[in-house]
Design a protein around this nucleic acid. Structure first.
Length: 408
DNA sequence: AAGCTAACATAATCAGAGG
DNA sequence: CCTCTGATTATGTTAGCTT
């Protein structure tokens, strides 16, 4: 066992970041790191959006700030500890969120445990082009499709399977860890990414659907689903309602990376309303281990199929957007291992919904989709500003195009 | 299934930097 | 000197891997 504490203080010159060379001295205590203002700013802003960054985010921060990942981890640990202590000392009055007039309310879900890094993954440099929540969103990261290595696919698979199971829970949602017992949730409407090794689990009640209108958006599936990633064995439930397991749902799960399927809105007080949905039926997935990933040739075609099935997205808004199949008639899916989000016209609405829903999902969306959605949003704005009506751009691989939408 | 290990968490504490 | 905060240690949980 390690003998107590090493208290031989180092009286050398303070190591100033970004010069990171304060590795632990032989048998001594690591020199205290002094973070620069810029570095702290990045860390703080990241912390505000995600107090529990995963390894990829930490590595990303590390490369961005030139702070060793281990120091970043320590920083977040200390930050969490002090924030918890601070909030403990404060009067722990629980403020019930005011859902009355807000269309988006607290929605607690149990997010998945972090995917474990296998040795093969951890040993190498992170190949995930993830988009952490850095200052200014992800604008610091070049916009490019996310590329996944063979090794990352199984990891993502487990990750998204967890997401899938997350949304199969009922109204009583289990939170992944005691992280949620802090005021993060109640005050900031955030929920934590669970991590392995978390303390005992607790449950947090979800605001009853009957009392408060919800946005209950199945974004995790809309964005991250995959044929191989989501293998729902039991009916999906959202807010106590059982979601359809019909062809639309399955199709949604198959096409998450190309586009969100349909935005159906309904009043929660009316229960589930069956609305017409349209979706893209793609026969491949960038994240799937389908044979198409194994070769470079071929251009799997995107097939369009209409669907008539319940769409379990709740919203107080009584309108819906249905995308005609023609929207994607000319889309082609590249067979490269690139996630190119083919988000059609309603990107702005989608983005707003995502962002309002929870910043963390935006973050995860960015992890997978990169800046595609943001770019879409920008392009949509440009179109509107130029009076271009309802023509929306989309991309597929290295090709881009636009289509006119006559949505209702 | 059991054991090992990695990863991550909180909590407590030490100790350096700076006001 | 005091406060803030980075660094360390102890301890616990979870999940993947191996046997």
């Amino acid at each position: 066992m390690e003998p107590a504490k090493v208290k031989n203080s180092v009286t050398e010159q303070v190591t100033q970041c970004p010069v990171i060379s304060n590795t632990p001295k032989e048998g001594g205590r690591r020199k205290r790191t002094t973070f620069s203002k810029t570095q702290l700013d990045i860390l703080v802003k990241t912390f505000e959006r995600d107090p529990y960054p995963g390894i990829t985010v930490r590595e990303r921060l590390s490369s961005l700030t030139e702070i060793p990942e281990s120091r970043i981890q320590v920083w977040f640990q200390n930050r969490r500890a002090r924030q918890l202590n601070q909030k403990k000392t404060e009067a722990p009055t629980f403020h019930k969120p005011d859902y009355g007039n807000k269309k988006l309310t607290h929605f607690s879900v149990n997010l998945p445990n972090r995917p474990r890094i296998t040795e093969s993954l951890a040993s190498g440099q992170s190949q995930l082009n993830l988009q952490p929540c850095l200052p200014g969103g992800n604008q610091n990261v070049p916009s490019q499709p996310v590329q996944y290595s063979e090794q990352q696919l199984p990891r993502l698979d487990g990750h998204f399977k967890s997401l899938d199971s997350t949304f199969r829970t009922g109204t009583q949602i289990q939170t992944p860890s005691t992280h949620l017992n802090s005021a993060y949730v109640s005050r900031e409407n955030q929920f934590s990414l669970g991590a392995t090794g978390s303390p005992s689990q607790i449950q947090h009640p979800v605001q009853p659907l009957q009392q408060h209108p919800y946005y209950q958006i199945s974004f995790p599936e809309n964005y991250y689903s995959d044929t191989n990633l989501f293998q729902a064995a039991s009916p999906l439930k959202l807010g106590g309602y059982q979601c359809g397991q019909g062809p639309q749902y399955q199709a949604a799960k198959e096409n998450i990376y190309r586009m969100p399927v349909t935005i159906n809105c309904l009043n929660s007080s009316q229960g589930v309303i069956n609305e017409e949905c349209s979706y893209v039926k793609a026969n491949t997935s960038h994240l799937s281990k389908s044979p198409v990933l194994g070769h470079d040739g071929g251009d799997p075609q995107v097939k369009m199929e209409p669907a008539q099935a319940p769409c379990n997205i709740y919203s107080p808004v009584s309108s819906s957007i249905t995308l005609p199949p023609s929207t994607f008639a000319n889309c082609q899916v590249t067979s490269q291992r690139m996630l190119t989000p083919l988000v059609p016209l309603f990107g702005q609405q989608l983005k707003e919904m995502i962002d309002e829903f929870d910043p963390r999902w935006s973050y995860m969306r960015n992890e997978v989709l990169g800046t595609g959605l943001d770019l879409l949003f920008e392009s949509e704005q440009n179109v509107e500003q130029s009076g271009g009506g309802r023509s929306y751009p989309f991309t597929s691989g290295d090709q881009s195009s636009s289509c006119h939408l006559g949505h209702t």
